[in-house]
Design a protein around this nucleic acid. Structure first.
Lengths: 242, 242
DNA sequence: CGAAAACTTGATTAGCATCAAACCAGGTGG
DNA sequence: CCACCTGGTTTGATGCTAATCAAGTTTTCG
């Protein structure tokens, strides 16, 4: 528990308390900043709530800000030359998305909320100022780029190859990384699964149904499910050994 | 044409001339440096020649250096959980690989020469020193991370989806980016194509043979080919419209 | 020159896409 | 409150694409 200094307890700016109390702060972009640093910046940061299906930013748009995901799951997707949507990777709590805006580049992909999402919008100009003042910030940025690259490469190696059943199992494993408190994982719509795993809705549905019958998966309310991790890992091992 | 100052014309260190005359210097990592900066560093840089099939670095190895590719084509690949090799992306002239070493992280993938390759090995410690001295260098690093991410995402969106024929056509298009002077492109082995496009050697062979018969592709000597770009683009359009 | 490696081609089969139809949940308006 | 509609999901039947299995051919290199 951090003790909040008295002089700031009744700060006039409402964002002050929010940044101060931010649950993801220690992992997130401004973990590197001390309270003083935080004080200087909070008025430029806006926190936003985004409903499922709504876009956070779009590909080709001139990037003006990066976003820290405070809760929920965001998908990053592109439309291929052929015209079909492909989901490239997911971002969750503590992830920073839209990094390319720091370089004054256009966003390279669409970012769309999969669940209700809370993000903090951090303007590019602010990142520039901070980078000049705090060398830690630049290092943190580079680490985040590397993480994004790692995620993309892992997605490519594990989620685009092998039979449909294996890809679905690996997706569930990945989704478990974004689990809510209470073991609940977000269960994507079947067409989202299709865009992630390069399969049709019908195939996605068949795989999910099969796994439900096997007890790997238990849908709990719309768009959520409980995973039996033991059975999931077991199914994966069985899959990979054949 | 840069005029080379007299005082350096007979520098004792052989690497001095090489760095000075480096054909990729303006695009490569040290484009940001002036001659003075270059003078300070060249003794730490080693240029290496690597034969096809040889490894430049391996995944999990503690990264001690980044590498600028001066010529040839390098593949970045991972072994999936299931145990099969997956090629994630390619790197060519002016690309910088092994960026994660700057963060003192382990290499995330294997880097293997596809053709005869020339690289400059740049130690991590040198990058650190330069970053402190020259702010441009850090910006350049971030741009390169973003480029790597872009490449990985494009690979995912264009080369992992659609029928085998389309994926092969798109691979040829990508290979044309790495063309030699004289329109010659490197033609991978069939099993490399398989690892790039997630198909078997047999399917890769069938696709290449078909495209050769259609005149899209003309093998010229081992491991090289001439592409008819007009027919290639035409075949791609026909493919995507169906 | 001979062996190994890479490539090609053919026949058969498995897995997934496609087409088609039914099913279900949640929201709306009569 | 219920009938209805809509968007998402499930299931079934059929066909096509690419994997697999199996030779055979060409190239490479000691």
């Amino acid at each position: 528990m951090t003790v909040i200094p008295i002089y700031r307890k009744d700060s006039t700016h409402p964002q002050a308390q929010i940044c101060q109390a931010c649950a993801v702060r220690q992992f997130a972009f401004f973990g590197a900043l001390d309270d003083n640093g935080l004080e200087r910046i909070h008025q430029h940061i806006a926190d936003q709530r985004i409903e499922p299906g709504q876009s956070i930013f779009s590909a080709q748009e001139a990037g003006q800000a990066v976003f820290t995901v405070r809760s929920g799951v965001v998908r990053l997707e592109r439309v291929s030359e052929r015209g079909d949507r492909r989901i490239l990777r997911l971002a969750g709590r503590t992830d920073l998305i839209g990094l390319e805006s720091v370089l004054s580049q256009r966003y390279a992909a669409d970012a769309v909320a999969c669940t209700p999402v809370e993000v903090c919008r951090i303007p590019r100009t602010l990142v520039d100022e901070l980078s000049a003042a705090e060398p830690q910030v630049v290092l943190d940025l580079m680490k985040r780029w590397q993480r994004a690259l790692d995620d993309a490469e892992e997605w490519l190696a594990e989620l685009t190859t092998g039979p449909a059943r294996r890809r679905m199992l690996r997706l569930l494993l990945k989704l478990s990384e974004y689990a809510q408190p209470g073991d609940m994982v977000w269960l994507p719509m079947r067409d989202e699964m299709g865009a992630m795993l390069d399969m049709t809705v019908e195939t996605a549905s068949r795989m999910v149904s099969a796994l439900r019958r096997e007890g790997v998966l238990e849908p709990m309310g719309t768009r959520e499910a409980h995973l039996d991790m033991t059975r999931l890992m077991q199914a994966l091992r069985a899959q990979d050994s054949t």
